[in-house]
Design a binder for these strands. Structure first.
Lengths: 333, 333
DNA sequence: CTGTTAGCGCCTTCAC
DNA sequence: GTGAAGGCGCTAACAG
């Protein structure tokens, strides 16, 4: 009645060879005479044998699974990355253990701990802040880690991203150029380096080059959600902003709808540039101009980088920066 | 230099007890004297010991991980389900191995096979068709399976869904009621039972009750994508449809934008009811009227059901049907 | 090319 | 309440 498993031992017996030989053919070891290989394969087929990956993992100390910590699969930005990660993982015969963290430090630490207990061969971390507790867990195990779609100022772990400074600088520049005097910046928490350091820096640089004074009241910290965007538009109007750079597409759609709902014309009376170029940017009317981060590729490259690290290959540069563009659509003039 | 792991054996030695005792305290077995428990816990803390889940899995034949086969994480419908699944899984100390299948039979079979090899304790399958090869894999292993957000006409495996027949019947009814003579139905492949059997049936029943003749030219098979929707609107116009029921929200948004782009007024000149009530339905202008499937809950309940099955608890009913509503928004009169 | 022999780290009877 | 011992199914030297 129990899931009667047939083991490598059964196959060995039936095929009149040793377990070692069976193991060899299963693992594609060339040191097997074609004839015996054929015989073994035949028995495997007949018995419908399937290697037990757990046992294999224990013996070989490799699980061929990697842990992926994601803030929220439900957010297109992250799910797009995740898709790239999974596809490349599959390509390299890895599986993904996916865990949502809501960027909640406690959850992150807890999930990281169980992932490590499960002996994942590597980790991909999405999330914009590497707290000390997370860093501690990382270094405590020697498991390779890659950050996808974010950046670690200390460059202690691998990371795949774009040049956030340059991207936001360029976006700000365009908005300034088209005549906006007051361009707002709406990102997530400024305690996250990607926002507080990089994006903000790009924003300030653009202002400076245009000789526009920096005004802190134009900086907004928000959740990456549609609701937050909807609520934000009013505040944006209040401070006299005529354009905004949003750090998240859902947030941007919220801002757009907030404007539309008040009868404000986009882009005529208000311009928006968003940051992630997810599918969402094409679904609105007008469509959203966006920084074009190659999301899928960021995930894919991150996973590829991780495979190299797991494979102990030589890594030229563990921080890889992909190219970006500003994709002009209807939300800007 | 190697990831020097400390094992249960080290803890046992340091604490002057046997491995068995350590195992007991780690697993919360009550048969341990408080004093020794305390001592062991202390050593565990000091040595920073973390049980190896792989070894545990081999010995106990339980991995506390479940496999989740998802067509595409990038689609809000599925990612919403996935979120519900993961949250409940976490609650019950399970982890999720997530694998994208694109509803491609070959990928499904292949991934299912590796999931089974990894000894997952259970499986959640999202996808609208249980092909024979999938069924074969399912029954070949005795691993519990639950379908989330779809339905198996044969009810061989567990499933959590809503009453698709009633939902589409109601939606069709409303559209007919508001004066539409030609209501189209745009779903995924009709070979999928959820479409070809259930949704179509609800559609036909509504027509019948309203004494409207069934016209096959009003039935459309589409990919669940924005692009497909965009392209579809033209065809909808061509067959003289004035309203549509879409089986997927991205598809619906595409149809909406297709209409808007041609200057067709929604809902005045064209009405739309979509099926999944994902976040997307709120993001458009007008917002989309939708069948309100409790996506997160479907995922959550599916996972909960699976935990019961893995736990060999008595299951009253392995097909659970959740309630639904029609959420009226701006895309209908 | 193939077989033998140890483990991998932990759980689980079965005694004591 | 605690210890000893035998696996779980497979890989990895090491012989031959």
């Amino acid at each position: 009645m129990e899931k009667q498993t047939i083991t490598i031992y059964d196959v060995a017996r039936e095929a009149n060879v040793s377990m070692a030989t069976v193991s060899r053919v299963v693992n594609g070891n060339p040191n097997v005479k074609p004839a015996t290989r054929k015989k073994v394969l035949e028995v495997i087929e007949r018995l419908d044998y399937r290697p037990n990956a757990v046992a294999r993992g224990l013996a070989s100390k490799k699980t061929t699974t990697v842990g992926v910590i994601i803030p929220d699969v439900t957010n297109m930005f992250f799910s797009s990355l995740a898709r790239g990660i999974d596809d490349v993982a599959t390509m390299y015969k890895y599986n993904i253990i996916l865990a949502n963290s809501d960027e909640n430090n406690q959850k992150e630490v807890s999930v990281l701990s169980t992932l490590l207990a499960k002996q994942v061969d590597g980790l991909i971390f999405m999330g914009h802040e590497l707290t000390d507790s997370i860093r501690a867990e990382f270094s405590r195990s020697k498991t390779p880690v890659v950050l996808a779609g974010s950046i670690d100022p200390d460059e202690q772990v691998g990371s795949v991203n774009i040049d956030y400074v340059a991207a936001v600088e360029e976006a700000t520049h365009q908005l300034l150029e088209s005549g906006n005097k007051r361009v707002a910046l709406a990102t997530g928490s400024l305690t996250h380096p990607i926002n507080g350091q990089f994006r903000l820096k790009g924003y300030k640089q653009a202002l400076e080059k245009a000789s526009v004074a920096y005004d802190e009241s134009l900086i907004f910290e928000n959740e990456p959600s549609y609701q937050a965007g909807l609520a934000l538009f009013g505040k944006l109007q209040k401070v006299g902003a005529t354009a905004v750079i949003a750090g998240d597409d859902e947030l941007a759609v919220g801002i757009l709808d907030g404007a539309l709902d008040k009868g404000v014309k986009v882009p005529d009376d208000f311009e928006i540039i968003t940051s992630n170029n997810t599918k969402l940017t094409e679904m609105t009317r007008p469509q959203l101009t966006s920084i074009d981060q190659p999301l899928y590729d960021i995930g894919a490259v991150a996973m590829r980088l991780l495979t190299k690290m797991m494979n102990k290959e030589e890594i030229e540069e563990k921080t890889v920066m992909l190219g970006f563009d500003i994709l002009k659509r209807g939300s800007t003039k």
